[in-house]
């Protein structure tokens, strides 16, 4: 099935610079329907207002981390299969393994570029 470039995407990061950069990269890839959240709690609030086809989240956020958000998303009745890409500076094998066990769809290590983002999104969503 072809990937719709209009799909609603939620990006979650507590650094506004990173939200801006991720939004720009997604725009470069053709994805314009992007909503921003500044931590896990804000993300859950946004998910209550709108259904998202893809979540791209940072790990290190307070008060609710991206890892806790991932577990919440996988445990919620509406979102157990929504693709969830973790974008993080957490570069330890145990972090990747924990995220994988919690059901992450893919794992991107910061800093990253548009090429890496595209390849990981294609791995999750299919070619576009």
């Amino acid at each position: 099935m072809a990937v719709s470039k209009d799909m609603p995407i939620l990006i979650v990061d507590d650094f506004k610079t990173m939200l801006r950069i991720t939004r720009q990269m997604l725009a470069q890839l053709g994805f314009m329907n992007v909503t921003e959240a500044t931590d896990g709690v804000d993300a859950i609030e946004k998910m209550g207002q709108k259904d998202f086809a893809l979540i791209i989240s940072d790990w290190n956020m307070e008060p609710m981390s991206g890892y806790d958000l991932l577990k919440h998303v996988r445990g919620a009745s509406k979102t157990p299969t929504v693709p969830f890409v973790m974008v993080t500076a957490e570069r330890k094998p145990e972090n990747v393994i924990a995220a994988k066990k919690a059901g992450v769809s893919n794992y991107i290590i910061k800093p990253f570029n548009a090429g890496t983002l595209k390849s990981k999104l294609m791995a999750v969503l299919g070619p576009f």
């Binding site: 650094f15 990173m18 950069i21 720009q24 990269m25 500076a89 800093p111 990253f112 570029n113």
Partner: peptide, 13 residues
């Protein structure tokens, strides 16, 4: 422009 944006990611780290 995109590459400059990508380079600005240092601020996050």
């Amino acid at each position: 422009g995109l590459q400059i944006s990508e380079a600005c990611a240092f601020q996050d780290i």
